[in-house]
Design a protein around this nucleic acid. Structure first.
Length: 573
RNA sequence: CGGGGCGUAGCGUAGUGGCUAGCGCGCUUGGUUUGGGACCAAGAGAUCGGGAGUUCGAAUCUCCCCGCCCCGACCA
C-alpha cells in the first residue's frame, strides 16, 4: 500500500516552465518524473510504478505469443556495428565513448546486430527456427532535438523483438504473430491507435507498419480514410491517377511569358492572356534535386510542393537528398531557373521522375527551357518521357484515398510501435546462416519489432488526461484505488487504513492519503492530479456510517455504507 | 545545424546601472482552522548559469562559454 504520509512525492501547483505538452506537464506536476538533462528523465516512485505496469503488460503479451525474453547490455563494443556499417551510418545520433584502453564503445540505439550475433552463437540448423526473442531495454539516441518530455527522449525504454526464419513465408508468419501480439498489447494498454503502412527507411527491409496513437501533440502526421479505414504514413501514401486521353490536344505552343519565374506570376499571365481558367494545378513544376551528388528532376503539379521525405522514402538507396542551390545551377547552364521544362531533359542527361499525377496523356503548361518562355499543351508521354514515377508531391487533406477514392484526412499521432520485415540484411552482414534439410547453408531472414515503453506512458497520459490531471486506465495506474481520509477523527483514519488493508488482501492495489495536515481540498486536488481510477473518500459522512465513491473517468460520485465499501469496490474489478 | 526565446531559492516568477535581490507556492516552528489547493505570526532557504571585461558601483551593459525550451532540418 502506498501511504502518502511517507511516499516520496511532492506535487507541484504550477506547470513546469520547460513543458509544453500535457503529458509532460502533468507527469512532472503529479510527481512522476523529473528532468535531468535534455531528453533524459528520472522516474519517481509513482512514475516508476506506472512504467513497470506498462512493461508488465507488454511482457505478458510477448510471453503469451511465445516470444522469449533476453537481456543485452546497453553498453556495447563497436565491432558488430562496424560489420553492418552502422558505426558510421548512424552518425551523430549514436552515443559513442571509449574505455580506458581507448577502445570504442557505444550506447545501444537499437540491437539488431546483437540479437543476430546471439542467435548465430547458439543456433545453426533450420530445425531451431522459427525463433522470436525480445528484451525490454534502455536505449540511447543522441537526438538532434529531444522534445515533448518523455515522448522523444535521448534515453528511453523500448521493447524490441527480433524474429528469425529460414523462408520468406516464415518471416511473414512471424511478422503476423507480432502484429497480433501488438494489437493485444495496445488494446490492454487502453490506447487508441491506427496501424498504418510505412516505409522501411533506414532500417532496410521491405514491409513495415507503424502503430500510431492519435493525439494532437503527436509529432507524426499520417493519412486516414474516414470511409474505408485506409491509413498510411505520409511517406507511404499512394496516389492513384488514371491515364488521360490526349487525342484532342493540339501541338506544343510556345509562349512569350516575360517575368513569370514563379507559378503565381505564370498563372496570372496565362489568365490575362487566355481569359481565365488557369490554376497552379494546370502547370507543371520542374524541381531540381541533388540526390547523392546526382542531379535529378522531379515533376509535380505547380500547386504542390515537392515533399523531400516522400521522394527519398520512395527512391531506393538515396542517402542525401536536397534541393538545387545556386552552385548546382552553375554546373548545368542549360537549366534556366524558373523556366525549366521536361522536354529537353534527355539532352541534359538528367533523370526525370514524375509524381503519379503527371500520368501519360495529361497536358501541362511548363517551362520552355528559355528565359521568359513557357509552353502549353505539353503532353506527358507525347512531348516528354519520364524515367520513372515516384510519389513526390506533398500530401494534403482531401486527397483521394487509394483504395476507395474518398477524400482523406490528415491527423497527428505518436508512434508507439513499429514492425518491420527486415529480410536478410543483418543476417548477411553478420553471416547468420543455418543448414537446411539438404545440408545447404541458408541466410536467415529477420523481422524487427519495437514498442516505445516509456513513450507509451506518455501516449496513454496524452490520450486519457483531462483538465484536472492524469486519468489512468485501471491496469496502468500506480494504484487501482485511492483512499482519501479527511478530517481529524482517528476513527476515520483507522477505517481508511483497514479498508486499504482489506483491498490489498483482495489483490487490489491501494494508495492511501493518510496525511493529517493537509486540508480536504488539497487531498482531493492531489488525488485528481495523480489520476488513480477509483477514489474513496472517508470523511465527514463517516459519522453517519458512510463513505463516498468516485470514478475518476466519469466524475460520478455516490455515497455508500462504509460496511459495503469493500464489497462494492471489489465488484469493480 | 539554421531561426526564435529563456536562464534569479525545490517550483513558478518580479526586478533595464544604485543602497539589505522582491513576491507566490512549497518547507520549518507556534497558534487558529479542516469537504475543494485555509488563515495569522515567526523563520530557514539564492555564490542572480559560468568566466572575462566596462564602471566608483553589475542580476541589469559588452564579449566568450555552458545549459534549457520552441519552430525547422534530422530521426525504428
Amino acid at each position: 500500500m502506498l501511504r502518502m504520509s511517507t511516499l516520496f512525492l511532492r506535487t507541484l501547483r504550477d506547470d513546469p516552465a520547460d513543458a509544453e505538452v500535457a503529458s509532460h506537464k502533468l507527469l512532472v506536476r503529479a510527481g512522476y518524473i523529473r528532468r535531468i538533462s535534455a531528453g533524459i528523465y528520472s522516474w519517481l516512485p509513482l512514475g516508476y510504478i506506472t512504467l513497470r505496469n506498462v512493461e508488465r503488460i507488454i511482457r505478458e503479451e510477448m510471453d503469451n505469443a511465445g516470444f522469449q525474453e533476453v537481456h543485452f547490455p546497453a553498453l556495447l563494443p563497436k565491432d558488430a556495428y562496424e560489420a553492418t556499417n552502422r558505426w558510421s551510418e548512424y552518425g551523430p545520433d549514436l552515443f559513442r565513448l571509449q574505455d580506458r584502453k581507448g577502445g570504442d564503445y557505444l550506447l545501444g540505439p537499437t540491437h539488431e546486430e546483437m540479437f543476430t550475433l546471439m542467435v548465430k552463437g547458439e543456433y545453426s540448423s533450420y530445425k531451431d527456427l522459427p525463433l522470436s526473442i525480445y528484451q525490454i531495454q534502455t536505449k540511447y539516441r543522441d537526438e538532434a532535438r529531444p522534445r515533448s518530455g518523455i515522448i522523444r527522449g535521448r534515453e528511453f525504454v523500448m521493447k524490441d523483438s527480433y524474429s528469425f526464419d529460414v523462408t520468406d513465408d516464415g518471416l511473414e508468419v512471424s511478422y503476423q504473430k507480432h502484429r497480433d501480439a501488438y494489437i493485444k498489447t495496445f488494446d490492454r494498454l487502453d490506447l487508441k491507435y491506427n496501424i498504418v503502412s510505412a516505409m522501411a527507411g533506414a532500417m532496410g527491409g521491405s514491409k513495415s507498419e507503424e502503430f500510431l496513437a492519435p493525439c494532437p501533440t503527436g509529432e507524426d502526421t499520417y493519412v486516414l480514410c474516414p470511409k474505408c479505414g485506409y491509413a498510411a504514413n505520409v511517406e507511404a501514401m499512394k496516389t492513384i491517377v488514371a491515364p488521360a486521353d490526349a487525342t484532342g490536344i493540339g501541338p506544343i505552343e510556345e509562349l512569350d511569358t516575360p517575368n513569370t519565374p514563379t507559378i503565381e506570376t505564370l498563372v496570372d499571365e496565362l489568365n490575362k492572356r487566355f481569359g481565365g481558367g488557369y490554376t497552379g494545378a494546370a502547370t507543371l513544376k520542374n524541381v531540381m534535386l541533388m540526390a547523392d551528388d546526382k542531379a535529378i528532376s522531379v515533376l509535380v503539379p505547380g500547386d504542390r510542393e515537392v515533399d523531400l521525405k516522400r521522394v527519398q522514402a520512395n527512391l531506393a538507396g538515396i542517402k542525401e537528398l536536397r534541393v538545387f542551390e545556386d552552385e548546382d545551377f552553375k554546373k548545368y547552364p542549360s537549366l534556366v531557373k524558373g523556366y525549366i521544362g521536361p522536354q529537353d531533359a534527355k539532352k541534359n542527361g538528367i533523370t526525370v521522375y514524375a509524381d503519379p499525377r503527371i500520368a501519360p496523356g495529361t497536358s501541362w503548361v511548363t517551362g520552355a527551357n528559355k528565359k521568359d518562355r513557357h509552353a502549353r499543351n505539353v503532353v506527358a508521354g507525347r512531348d516528354f518521357e519520364v524515367d520513372g514515377y515516384v510519389e513526390a508531391a506533398e500530401v494534403r487533406a482531401g486527397d483521394s484515398c487509394p483504395s476507395c477514392a474518398t477524400p482523406v484526412v490528415i491527423d497527428r499521432a505518436i508512434e508507439i510501435g513499429h514492425i518491420f520485415q527486415l529480410g536478410r540484411k543483418y543476417a548477411k552482414a553478420l553471416d547468420l546462416t543455418v543448414l537446411d534439410k539438404d545440408g545447404k547453408s541458408q541466410v536467415v531472414t529477420m523481422g524487427s519489432y519495437g514498442i516505445g515503453v516509456s513513450r507509451a506512458v506518455a501516449a496513454i497520459a496524452e490520450q486519457t488526461h483531462d483538465q484536472i490531471g492524469l486519468n489512468w486506465p485501471v491496469e496502468i495506474a500506480p494504484a487501482k484505488v485511492h483512499i482519501v481520509a479527511t478530517g481529524k477523527d482517528d476513527a476515520i483514519f483507522n477505517f481508511a487504513e483497514q479498508l486499504g488493508n482489506d483491498l490489498e488482501a483482495n489483490g487490489i492495489s491501494v494508495m492511501l492519503d493518510d496525511r493529517r495536515d493537509p486540508s480536504a481540498g488539497v487531498k482531493f486536488k492531489d488525488a485528481e492530479l495523480i489520476g488513480n481510477p477509483y477514489i474513496v473518500v472517508v470523511g465527514k459522512s463517516f459519522a453517519d456510517g458512510k463513505v463516498e465513491l468516485r470514478i475518476r473517468k466519469t466524475g460520478e460520485k455516490s455515497e455508500i455504507a462504509a460496511t459495503q465499501a469493500l464489497a462494492k469496490i471489489k465488484s469493480y474489478f
